[in-house]
Amino acid sequence: MSGENTVREIGHDEFDPYGTLALILIYFAILSVMWVFMYFVEFLGNDLTVLA
C-alpha cells in the first residue's frame, strides 16, 4: 500500500533498517551507562544500605 508521498516502493528483501540499528545501539549505550550510574553511584553510594 503506498501513500501519495511515496517516491519509491521498497520490499522486504531490499530494506536494511540500518538507521534503526544505529538508533537502537545508541539507546543500548545510554541504558547501559545509566544503569551503571544508578546502581553503583546512586544506590551503592547512598547511605544506610540494608544488610540483613
Partner: peptide, 9 residues
C-alpha cells in the same frame, strides 16, 4: 523511610 537513604520498607 529513613529520608535520603536506602532504609526504606
Amino acid at each position: 523511610e529513613v529520608v535520603g537513604t536506602n532504609a526504606n520498607a
